[in-house]
């Protein structure tokens, strides 16, 4: 089912949470709404679900205008941030709830069979008799997913689905959500503030800031060509340097870097830690190492430039370097944006 948002607006009292958002989500697509807190991403998700009504604009499911259809009849599966499992019902009872209250009558046996099928889909076979309080956070999240899928929704919506889980469980559930999505082919929209999660999981990422879409595209597009300084910063660690642009090149001490399309004048340069090189000598910006942080896959150096700026850069684990060493840094790759 294709979902189309056209100029959707939402205001709470005096606060405008969503400013005219337009977005098209293709049938069977897996899309992430990514943004910092307060960017309006959850509000957009809740409007698609029908848990909030839009103040303006339209939301279409396929060719049908769904803007005013109440959540009960919208046919969406919604996974809540804190799962919202019914604590007084067993896992099986939770999953069966949607089928039991449905206008479509199902026999007990049919419901039981479907519950068993969903439990095995989310790899929770045998836990149907437990109560939500008796299972782990990751298991609860899967129950919430199975419960949402039980009503055969046309659209699956997830609000920060992995927000409350620890890193390992997150990664595992991310993969299993992707598998389930691919198996069922259901149009899926999820909200997250975790860029890694969005980039790992989604076909397409929609980045929001202050209730507006600032960029959308495949993970590759947004990573390689961030449209603004905000997107660059939000997608991951980036060092910021201020420089002068002349004729399509940004000039920094000891060299220059490609800045196609950026008008002449002051500009900001963003470079990822992995895109900065360190050397004992040679051409480049003079730098002094002030900290070394060891990580499983790299050594991160914090270096101080002559202008007083700090840059962070990642080196291979074998790099022999210590605090106080002097050398030069060079930028291998960077994004340049004009400064207003």
């Amino acid at each position: 089912m294709k979902i189309t948002l056209d100029n959707v607006v939402k205001t709470f009292d005096t606060f405008r949470a969503v400013h005219g958002v337009s977005l098209a989500i293709g049938s069977g697509e897996l899309v992430a709404l990514l943004g910092p807190s307060g960017s309006g991403k959850t509000t957009i998700l809740r409007m698609v679900a029908g848990l909030e009504y839009a103040d303006g604009g339209t939301i279409r499911f396929g060719d049908r205008d769904a803007t005013r259809i109440p959540v009960r009849e919208r046919g969406v599966g919604f996974v809540f941030q804190h799962y919202a499992l019914f604590p007084h019902m067993t896992v099986a009872g939770n999953i069966a709830f949607g089928m039991k209250v449905s206008k479509l009558r199902r026999s007990r046996a049919a419901i039981d069979a479907r519950v068993a099928e969903l439990l095995s889909l989310v790899k929770l076979g045998g836990l149907g008799g437990r109560f939500p309080g008796q299972i782990s956070g990751g298991q609860r999240q899967r129950v919430a997913l199975a419960r949402a899928l039980a009503v055969d929704p046309k659209v699956l919506l997830l609000d920060e689905p992995f927000g409350a889980l620890d890193a390992n469980v997150r990664r595992e559930l991310r993969r299993s959500l992707r598998d389930i999505h691919d198996a069922l082919g259901i149009t899926t929209l999820f909200v997250t503030h975790d860029q890694e999660e969005a980039l790992d999981l989604a076909d397409r990422v929609v980045i929001l800031d202050h209730g507006r879409i600032v960029q959308e595209g495949t993970p590759q597009q947004v990573c390689r060509a961030p449209s603004s300084a905000f997107v660059t910063r939000f997608l991951g660690d980036a060092n910021r340097l201020v420089a002068e642009v002349r004729g399509g090149r940004a000039l920094i001490a000891g060299g220059s870097i490609e800045a196609a399309g950026v008008p002449d004048g002051r500009a900001e340069i963003y470079a990822r830690p992995a895109d900065i090189e360190w050397a004992r000598e040679g051409a480049g910006i003079a730098a002094r190492v002030i900290r070394v942080m060891d990580r499983p896959e790299s050594r991160r150096l914090v270096a101080r430039l002559p202008g007083g700026e700090h840059v962070e850069l990642d080196m291979t684990p074998e790099t022999a370097v210590g605090v106080g060493d002097s050398g030069v840094v060079t930028l291998r790759r960077a994004n340049v944006f004009a400064l207003a």
Binding site: A49, V71, F80, P87, F97, A148
Partner: peptide
């Protein structure tokens, strides 16, 4: 409101939500 919203999103009516979800809790 999460529990009631969840029940409604699963298709339960207001009364059903009250008696099956709100009241037991």
């Amino acid at each position: 409101r999460d529990l009631e919203e969840a029940a409604t999103s699963l298709g339960a009516s207001g009364w059903r939500t009250f008696f099956s979800v709100t009241l037991p809790n």
